[in-house]
Design a protein around this nucleic acid. Structure first.
Lengths: 175, 175
DNA sequence: CCATTTTATATTGATATCAATTCTTTTAGT
DNA sequence: ACTAAAAGAATTGATATCAATATAAAATGG
């Protein structure tokens, strides 16, 4: 009598989702590429994410956190957390912005630049090998398409909801 | 004697990496898509990853863990961890395989199927909206290219290294 | 049948990710 | 200046991710 009415989604639907879901495909490819670059960069003491983050800090002027998080399409709190191990290693310095004491300015240290310099040729080789393994033109096309996707969701908050709270309602309850 | 010799990577290199790194582009797009689907699926009490995982369990026969992890291109230990909250919710059952008592068989419960059924229309709508926002043909092309990337790294261990240890050497030491 | 190896999964520890919240500082409005 | 609102980050708590390792059971080779 329990009768949860087991809605029985057809297997064909499962196959459809499995084959068409862009989000699933993106997560899979992201995991696979992360492992590829993590393995390659391990001798340099960096993960793929740390490499990208540190490279994004290699600028003429130390950037504040907000724009860096936006560039990497990650939550600001994720960036705060990601900086911790890099600060501990002495590769990144986080200093108060004298012009706005709420803000922080992020900069590579000398050691950080050296580590990044050691990682760079590994990145070059790994990426070149990846490019070569992909069918001609795939690489550039994929890059553009991925950029479209991340660009679609970033800065442009649809009108009709300007300045919404950080996110809608309570977290998933899952009764 | 410290002499870290601050290798000064040119800013142009930073821009090159930022613009061409497939791994970075994949991570950004994956994060953006994850947020999109997480937000949409929240009322159903699922994240995008939980949705994909549960959908992959909607089969005629309960699969063991290995193939599911491979399908999702995730580490087996990640799958073990990902199952925990779903088991707690009573949406997925993990049972010992009577044919091979090392293994586990994964199955959706009735409640799990019901939850997945509630999430399905949300996925459909979200994905349709996403497709519509992408330039014509981008969606299918992106899917194919992503599949090539994840497929490139999965089952086909190059010869000349058969049965390598789970991963090469020690973890990144950092310095 | 027993010892060795291999296979399937779990555990531990570290980092990554994000929602919700809090704290501080700045900016706006008066 | 004073107050209220907004902005930038940090913290907390939960899940995700993976390397290294451990455990158990099956397969394999005498």
């Amino acid at each position: 009598m329990a009768m949860s009415n087991s809605v029985e989604i057809p297997f064909s639907t499962t196959l459809l989702v499995r084959d068409t879901c862009l989000c699933l495909h993106a997560q899979r490819a992201a995991r696979a590429l992360a492992r590829l670059f993590d393995d390659a960069l391990r001798p340099a003491g960096l993960t793929n994410g740390q490499f990208s983050l540190m490279m994004s800090l290699n600028r003429p002027e130390p950037p504040p956190m907000g724009p860096v998080a936006a560039l990497l399409a990650m939550d600001q709190t994720t960036l705060t957390a990601a900086l911790k191990p890099l600060q501990r290693k002495g590769w990144v310095s986080v200093m108060e912005n004298p012009k706005d004491r709420r803000g922080r300015l992020l900069a590579l240290t000398g050691e950080g630049k050296a580590a990044l310099g050691r990682a760079l040729p590994i990145w070059k080789d790994t990426h070149a090998a990846l490019d070569k393994k992909l069918p001609d033109g795939s690489s550039a096309r994929l890059r553009q398409d991925l950029q479209k996707v991340s660009g679609m969701m970033d800065g442009t908050p649809k009108p009709a909801e300007a300045s919404r709270p950080r996110r809608q309602s309570g977290r998933a309850t899952g009764d």
